[in-house]
Simulated scan of single mutants.
Amino acid sequence: MKDSMKALIFPKPWEVKCIDVDIPKPKTHEVLTEMRSVGICGSDVGIFEGNHWIVAHGPGGHGHETGAIVREVGSEVSGIHVGDHVARMGAGYAEYSTHVNVIGHGKDELSGALPIVRNDLSMDEISFADAVGCAINCFERAEFDKINDDNKKAIVFGLGPIGLILTKILLNHGIEVAVSEPFAHKRQIAQEWGAKTFDPHAYSRPHHGNYHVMDAIKEEFGEAHGVFEMVGKKETLLDAINLVYSGFRVMVFGAQKLMQIPYVDCRKKGVELVYPEAMVNSKANKDYWGEALDLIASHTLDLDKLITKRISLEDAIEAFQFYDRQKWIKIIVEPFRN
């Protein structure tokens, strides 16, 4: 094996470089993995822009949506072998890594944790585990299993990768779903799966006055037992509160630092605002790595539709600088791609 590797480094906001660094040496309780498939997450873009709470200046960045292959195994590690396919590796924007991202969002990482072996899954499939785990968490925190209604309904604002995966999970559970998303190719995927779709940009003042997407959803779909705010904007949160049934839950997952909550609106409807964590559910005292990987293995999520394109580490520099949420759903970085 060569001594050096290529890696992205994020030294300050709005700056990313591809550098040559030494390949990390695994300690006795670590494994060295070869990064094969790394999805660009919205949190990675936020870290690059400097407006996310996670800071990751070292080689490989945060890079937590990874599918990797084991290349070296520390002497104190058991149950993992060279050639195994593994999940939950971090610092993934590099050719190699020894970093394990336990929770999957840079939070409460455990020393001595090991990656998860899943030789039944491809590199791309494993790289979706973090996003799928977040979507399962959002779904479970809505507690649809406790709702006594034969016609359960949900509304999803925002169809990024997690919003789309969440939509598929809801539909797979027999829940009627409406989604609000401004970009047509994302709405099309949800529509093909069976969701009722709405374009928030279609309700402009010159043509609709004070009638906008919330009014259209309420009129054509109705209120819902669970509403998921996956955008991170005050306006969509207010719409979510307006559209949930009285006494039911709004899941707030869109990334934001400060959002003002209207006390009167929430109090009148008895709305519960729930903030699902990423890959962990503190209320249930569990994480979702195993469930996410098992769900991916069931091949019921149609994940291939979410991959927009594949790029090299060098190409990822421009992808971060000119990240296009309108055109892209999931970009896969392949560190060994030429």
Results as ranks from 00 to 15, higher is better:
K2E: 14
D3G: 00
K6Y: 09
V16M: 05
D20W: 02
V21M: 06
K25Q: 05
P26A: 03
K27A: 12
R36G: 13
R36V: 10
S37R: 15
S37M: 09
V38N: 01
S43C: 03
D44N: 09
G46S: 13
G46T: 05
E49K: 15
H57L: 12
H57S: 13
H62Y: 10
G63M: 09
G63D: 03
H64E: 01
H64N: 00
E65D: 07
A68G: 04
V70M: 01
G74S: 00
G74I: 00
S75V: 02
E76A: 11
S78Y: 01
D84K: 14
H85V: 04
Y93G: 03
E95Y: 08
Y96A: 11
Y96N: 13
T98C: 15
E109Y: 07
L114N: 04
I116T: 14
V117A: 08
R118Y: 08
E125H: 07
I126V: 15
A129H: 12
V132G: 09
G133C: 05
C134N: 14
A135E: 03
A135V: 04
I136T: 00
C138L: 11
C138R: 11
C138G: 06
F139Y: 15
F139Q: 02
F144H: 10
I147F: 00
D149L: 00
D149S: 03
N151V: 06
N151S: 10
K152L: 13
A154H: 05
G158D: 12
L159G: 04
L159C: 10
G160A: 12
L164E: 11
I165R: 15
T167D: 07
I169G: 07
I169C: 09
V177F: 07
S180H: 08
E181G: 05
P182I: 02
A184W: 03
K186T: 03
R187E: 03
R187V: 04
I189P: 07
W193Y: 08
A195V: 01
K196F: 02
T197G: 06
P200F: 04
Y203Q: 14
S204H: 10
H207W: 06
M214F: 06
D215F: 08
K218A: 11
K218Y: 05
K218D: 07
G222K: 12
G222V: 06
A224F: 05
A224G: 04
E229V: 10
D239V: 02
A240C: 05
A240H: 01
I241P: 13
I241M: 15
S246I: 04
F248Q: 15
M251R: 08
G254W: 04
G254D: 04
L258H: 14
L258M: 13
P262M: 05
P262R: 05
K268L: 12
K268R: 14
G270A: 09
V280A: 12
A284E: 08
G290K: 05
G290I: 00
A292Q: 12
L293W: 02
D294N: 08
D294H: 05
S298R: 07
D302G: 08
D304C: 07
K305N: 14
K305L: 14
K305Y: 06
I307S: 07
T308A: 12
K309F: 09
I311K: 01
S312Q: 13
L313H: 07
A316E: 05
F320K: 01
F320Q: 02
F322M: 03
R325I: 13
Q326C: 09
W328A: 10
I329V: 11
K330S: 03
I332L: 06
